[in-house]
């Protein structure tokens, strides 16, 4: 556990040293703030005291930003050979994977934390449903965790950051759009499966304030799968 935290700290340090963290925070707050308060079907247009608008914007912003955050995590170690240094220290592949996952997740949580003024503002404008806000934020964190796990995996298969980014986006787009499209066109079991695989159905119910164990199982299993695949990629490199 101690080792995991040491690596996580180093990764966070690397995010801030490379300005990546600042760029992400500014862009995330800029985008989500602009579309939540100023432009399009913003909060004043919707005229309801909830954060639905923000959650939907953040949902899309994170979809594009998270792969940029995760693309470096393992591909850079593969390219520069530092992975050898890390894995010959008395730590396991799993600890490395979890540490890097946590670093990216903590950065996202920090970004979400900085949107707290949105909540304060909206709650002063009307009668806000605190439960829905809580479960909405939880949903964003879970979606982020899922995309981080996917990004970590794509970062583990290559030593090129751009390849890792694009690969993560193309896997993500299935969960974000394609499964949902399929589910509306398919019927029967296939329709049910694609509907369950699509993030939308899980995310929507959570932002409305419903925390269902089925949704939690969904998010955690994709996360776990991504992490396990990343770990096995690291292991595979050692027995080639």
């Amino acid at each position: 556990m101690k080792e995991i935290w040491i690596i996580t700290k180093r990764e966070l340090q690397a995010y801030f040293d490379s300005l990546m963290a600042y760029i992400l925070l500014i862009l995330f707050l800029g985008f989500s703030g602009f579309f939540t308060w100023i432009y399009g079907s913003d909060i004043f247009f919707v005229k309801q005291a909830n954060l639905q608008v923000f959650f939907n914007i953040a949902y899309w912003t994170l979809f594009f930003f998270i792969p940029a955050l995760t693309m470096r995590l393992l591909s850079e170690e593969n390219r520069s050979g530092t992975i050898e240094l890390l894995l010959t220290k008395p730590i396991s592949e799993w600890q490395v994977i979890v540490a890097k996952f946590l670093a990216a997740l903590l950065l996202i949580v920090a970004a979400l934390f900085l949107t707290l003024p949105y909540y304060i503002t909206v709650s002063s404008l009307g009668n806000i449903d605190n439960g829905a806000v809580f479960s909405g934020y939880l949903a964003l964190i879970l979606v982020s965790g899922m995309y981080i796990a996917i990004g970590l995996f794509t970062s583990s298969v290559t030593n090129n950051q751009i390849v890792a980014y694009l690969l993560a986006l193309s896997i993500g787009i299935f969960f974000q759009i394609i499964f949902q499209m399929l589910s509306t066109n398919l019927t029967g079991i296939l329709g049910g499966i694609t509907d369950y695989l699509s993030i939308n159905s899980h995310f929507d119910s959570m932002t409305r304030g419903v925390i269902d164990s089925r949704d939690l199982v969904y998010f955690f299993s994709v996360m776990l799968l991504g992490l396990v695949f990343s770990e096995s990629m690291l292991m595979k490199k050692r027995s080639v």
Binding site: K2, E3, I6, I7, R10, Q13, A14, D17, S18, S80, G81, T82, E84, L85, L86, T88, K89, P90, I91
Partner: peptide, 22 residues
């Protein structure tokens, strides 16, 4: 290791502290 891979973006002292930690 061969080719001596290092976290090039870290200061020497931080890097050594990191290694000592893990």
């Amino acid at each position: 290791p061969e080719n001596n891979p290092l976290y090039e973006d870290m200061p020497v002292i931080d890097y050594l502290q990191f290694c000592a930690g893990i």
